[in-house]
Each structure stands twice: as C-alpha cells, then as structure tokens.
Write a protein that binds this DNA or RNA. Structure first.
Length: 266
DNA sequence: AATGGGACCTGCGCGC
DNA sequence: TGCGCGCAGGTCCCAT
C-alpha cells in the first residue's frame, strides 16, 4: 500500500526518468481508472503535452503539464507506475517522446487518474492536512489536543495529517510505545513529542530503503522496496516482539488490521 | 463530532 | 484438486 515513502520514492525516480519528456500517445486498456474527463478527452488533451513538473502531495502524485493542466495519479492500494514499461498489464500506458512507455498498472482498479485545470481545486487537496515534515512538535501537540478519537485512526486521517497510512502508523506507534487505541488527548506531552519524532524518522528511514513492498508496491523500475525487513510489527502477528518476550498482536481498528505489542505499547 | 460500515475491486490463501 | 469465502486497505459516502 503506497504511503508517503513509497509515493516519494516513485516521485524522485519519475523526476529522473520522465521530466521534460512529451506524452506522444495514451493507450487506454481500462477506462475505469480515468475519473475525469471522459476517456476520449483525457487522451486528446494529454497528447503532445510536456511533463514540466512533478509534485507529491500526501499520497497523490501530480504532473504539471505544458498545457497548464495537471495529470493527478493516486495509486490507492494496488497502483503501480513502471518505466520503462511494456504495456502488457497496464490499465493505461503513456507513450513518451523517447519511445518508451510509462505504464500505470492497477489490479484492483481503485486507482485514480485525473486531467484537470487546477490540482489546487481538488477536494482531496483542499482538505489535505499538513505533512509531518511541515510541522513542529508544538504544532503537532496542539493538533492532538481535544481529540478524543483513537490515535491510530487519527494518524491515518489524511485531513488531519497527510502521508501516513496503516503500515507507518503502526510502526510509528510501536516505536513510540503507544497503544493504538489510546484516545489522542490522553497522550502525555512527552509521548506526543516522542510520537512526532518517530513518525518523521520512520518515514525518512522508509524513503531511504525505497519503501515497503507488501502487496503490490514496486519502484518505478519494477524492483521491490526493501523496508519490509525493518518492520517491527506490521505483518508480524504472532511473531516475537523485538522489545520484549511477548508476541505481536493483531486487532481490527477502524476496520483496519492493526499490529502492535500489547506489552510494550501502553 | 465521531464512529462504523459499506462500496469500490481483484488476487491470494485458507479450510473443507 | 477445486471451490467458496474472507481478507487486504485508501478514500469516499452514508447512517447513526
């Protein structure tokens, strides 16, 4: 599941691989992933535009184009961007001026491609909370004040803070030794500070390892990311905790699988 | 206001 | 061996 580190990894690789290139053709194999405009307009308006700038906002990728429109790409659960691609499994392929393909793959068709005038006007963008790296500890503490909601679903709420999903929320909470079901306002000042630092450090570490290849995520080249080997709780149900002699437990929280150590995390 | 559930989807792993 | 089922989770949407 692509979260901030995975999307950031792809963004950095895209800058090296496709920035400044022209989209000469668009091959649509499944139009379900094209959310707007209609397929024909999507293709027509993308043709012969140059990729001028590549941005990431939370988990959303944005290509700013020479036409002044923007192509936004949300990978959701199983989306992949592959370059150079071969077009064999893609939902949509972008043929570039270098003759190579940029493939958008997505098994489950949750992903979203949009060609829009102003990405700033997207509802998702307007409601997006700040990124952890754009915050100070003080600001983060203020944001938690008065929040009765459980800390883990809150961290995953993109309107609260952007970029953290199920995997990194679990990992950050383990490192901060905080139980995922604690009401946010029950955290001590010290715990809030610790959690804020751990969120940033786990995301930076994951970027260094080029993301976590669980499920479908791969880098732009198609290679896996290496961060799974650093996971301390995610996907480790029943396995020994790295911090004590207990076992990692899995519960459902907000409809999401939640891994934690009931002994280390209070 | 906060929370829970369903919808969107497909592939995989499990139990029988 | 094969089939049906539950599950995976990012985001939106609706109900309570």
């Amino acid at each position: 599941m692509p979260e901030l580190p995975e999307v950031e990894t792809i963004k950095r690789e895209l800058e090296k691989a496709v920035l400044g290139k022209k989209i000469v053709d668009v091959i649509v194999n499944n139009s379900k992933v094209i959310r707007e405009p209609k397929r024909e307009d999507f293709v027509k308006r993308l043709k012969n535009t140059v990729i001028k700038n590549i941005l990431r906002k939370g988990k959303l990728l944005i290509f700013e184009l020479s036409s002044r429109k923007s192509l936004t790409i949300h990978l959701k659960m199983t989306g992949q961007l592959i370059y150079p691609g071969d077009g064999t499994t893609s939902r949509v392929s972008f043929k570039l001026s270098d003759g190579k393909l940029l493939d958008f793959n997505d098994n489950r068709l949750f992903g979203e491609l949009r060609l829009i005038d102003n990405w700033q006007n997207l509802k998702f963008i307007k409601e997006l909370g700040p990124e952890p790296f754009g915050l100070t500890g003080e600001k983060f503490k203020q944001m938690l004040a008065n929040k009765k909601t459980k800390i883990k679903p809150l961290l995953m709420n993109q309107t609260f803070m952007s970029g953290v999903g199920n995997l990194y929320a679990a990992e950050a909470l383990f490192r901060a030794k905080i139980h995922p079901e604690r009401p946010a306002l029950s955290l001590t000042e010290k715990e809030k500070e610790k959690l804020f630092q751990e969120i940033k450090s786990v995301l930076l570490e994951a970027i260094k390892y080029k993301g976590s290849s669980v499920d479908q995520y791969v880098q732009l080249s198609g290679k896996s990311g290496d961060y799974v080997k650093c996971h301390r709780v995610y996907g480790r149900e029943g396995k020994p905790c790295f911090g004590c002699k207990g076992k990692v437990k899995r519960i459902s929280l907000g409809g999401r699988g939640t891994y934690f150590c009931p002994i280390c995390q209070k």
